[in-house]
Simulated scan of single mutants.
Amino acid sequence: MKKLRTALIGCGRISASYAFAFPRLSDISEFVCAIDIEEDRAKAFAAPFGAAYGTCLEDLLDKDIDAVHLCLPHYLHAPMAIRAMEAGMHVLTEKPVAVTLQDADKMKAASEKTGKKLGVIFQTRYEASVQQLRKMIRDGAFGRIISARSILTWSRPYSYYEGCDWKGTWDKEGGGVLIDQAIHSIDRIRYMLGSDVEWIEGSIHNHYHDRIHVEDTAEAAICFKNGCLYSLYATNSYAADAPIFLEFQGEKGRCGLKQDVGFYELDGTYEEIQPVPAPGNKDIPDYWGMGHYAQLRDFYLSLCNNTPVSIDVTEGRKTLEIVKGIYYSSLCGRRITLPFEDTGYTDLNVASVPSPPSSAL
C-alpha cells in the first residue's frame, strides 16, 4: 500500500500531539512538510522528520500532499481548509470546525464539490473509557438516560492571552471558555448520548478577565431529543486545571468520567475504567489525552479505504451548534430551539458580554 503523504500547517503548542503521533503512524503515512508563518518554528518541527518546511500553503503545492492537518487559529480553519481542498488535499482540522455555522456550511460544500474528505479533531472521543461507556449507554445498561452533567474548572491566566492577537476575541477565536475548552466536554456528552439537541437555555459571563472580551464562565441547560436534560458549567477562572467531570444518570445506574478515568455504578457495584497507558510526553498536557494518535490513524484509514470519516464536518458542526446556541440564548435572554439562525450576532456578542471588575487574574 502506498503511504499517504502528509503535512502540518501551524506549529504552535498543539503540534506537540502531532509530533508524538506522526512517528507512530509511519506504517501508513510519511510526514513531508511543516508550515508556519514563523519559519524557525516550522523548521524546528520538520527537523526530526527530515521533512521540508515553509511559511504558507503554496509551499505545499509542489509536494504531492494527500492530507494536511490544520493547527491554526480558529478563524483560519474555514478559509485554509477550503483552499487546501480546492488544491487537491484532504483536510483534518483541529476543533472547532469553524468560528461560525455559516463557515462550517461553506466547508462542507467545498468538501462535496472537490470530493476531498474533511475531518475535525475531537480526540477525547477515542479514549478507552469513552468508547466503553458509550457502548454501555447505547446497549441500555443504565436504562433510559435521564440527565447528564459536565463540570470544567480550569485556569487561563492573562499570560495565556498575552502575545496572541486571536485568543480572547469574538471574531478570531469565536468565544471563550465554551468554544476553546468546554467544547470537548460538550462533544463527548453528545457523542456518548447519541442524540441531537432540542432546546438550549444558557448564560455567559466575563467575571474576572478584564483584558479580554469573551466569556470566562458559562452555564447552560440543554434538552436532547431523547429527553435527557444536560446541565453544563464551565469556567477558566479557577486556580488550576482541575480534572474534568462528566456524568450520566440513568434509570438503572450512572456512569461518567473523571478526566480520562471512566466509572460506572450498577446494582450497587462501583467500577472504574483505567486509561490505556501511553508513553509520557512532557509537551502534551494530561487533559489533552492521547487520542490524537488514534484519530489520525482512523482518518488515514478512511482515506486509504475510501470510507466515511468518523468525525466529519457534519459532526463538527453539530457540536459547534450547541456552543453557538448557548451564546445566542444568553444574548437573547431566552430558551432557543435548534436549528436557529445565528447570522450577524457576533457584533451583539461584543456589546452584550458585561465588563468585569478591574481586579485582574
Score class of each variant (00 low, 15 high):
H292Q: 07
R24P: 14
K225W: 10
S195N: 10
A109E: 15
D36I: 01
R83H: 08
M192W: 02
P73K: 05
I336N: 01
L320D: 04
D260W: 06
E38D: 08
V177K: 01
S237A: 15
P285T: 12
R335H: 08
S329T: 15
C332N: 13
L301D: 04
T55N: 04
R297N: 10
W288H: 10
G12F: 01
H205R: 13
F224C: 12
R211S: 10
L266G: 00
Y345P: 02
I336L: 09
D210T: 14
Q131V: 04
K116P: 01
P356G: 12
I82A: 07
R24K: 15
L232T: 01
I14F: 11
K324A: 11
L331K: 07
L70W: 05
A67Q: 00
D66M: 05
G174C: 13
E127S: 07
M89I: 15
M290W: 03
L229A: 14
L301I: 10
K324Q: 14
C332K: 15
V68C: 09
D103W: 03
G253R: 10
P79S: 07
A21W: 00
I326C: 08
T307W: 02
A67V: 07
R335S: 13
V197N: 04
F22W: 07
E127T: 08
G143H: 12
S330W: 00
P73S: 11
F49E: 13
R149L: 12
A220Y: 02
P279C: 05
G280M: 09
M290V: 07
E272S: 08
E30W: 04
E94L: 04
I189E: 00
K117A: 00
I244S: 07
I204Q: 02
V99K: 05
A239V: 15
K135E: 15
P354H: 09
L331A: 09
A221H: 14
I336K: 05
S111I: 04
F20S: 03
K116R: 14
G291C: 06
F340C: 11
L57F: 08
Y293R: 09
I14K: 03
C223F: 06
I326W: 02
L76N: 10
I200S: 06
K113N: 10
H213P: 06
T235E: 05
L92N: 01
E272A: 08
L361N: 06
I37T: 15
P275Q: 10
L320I: 15
S358P: 03
D196Q: 09
A98L: 02
K252T: 14
E127W: 03
S29M: 13
R190E: 03
I183K: 04
S355K: 15
A47M: 12
D165V: 12
L152H: 00
P73C: 06
M85E: 00
L348F: 04
L101P: 02
A34D: 00
K167D: 02
G174S: 13
S352L: 11
H205K: 14
P279G: 05
S237D: 13
D64M: 06
Q181W: 04
F340P: 06
V91S: 01
C228R: 01
L92C: 07
K324D: 13
F263M: 08
T153E: 13
I146G: 11
K95E: 05
Q259S: 13
S195E: 06
W170N: 01
R156D: 09
K324N: 15
E201P: 12
H184D: 12
E58P: 02
F224S: 09
R125D: 11
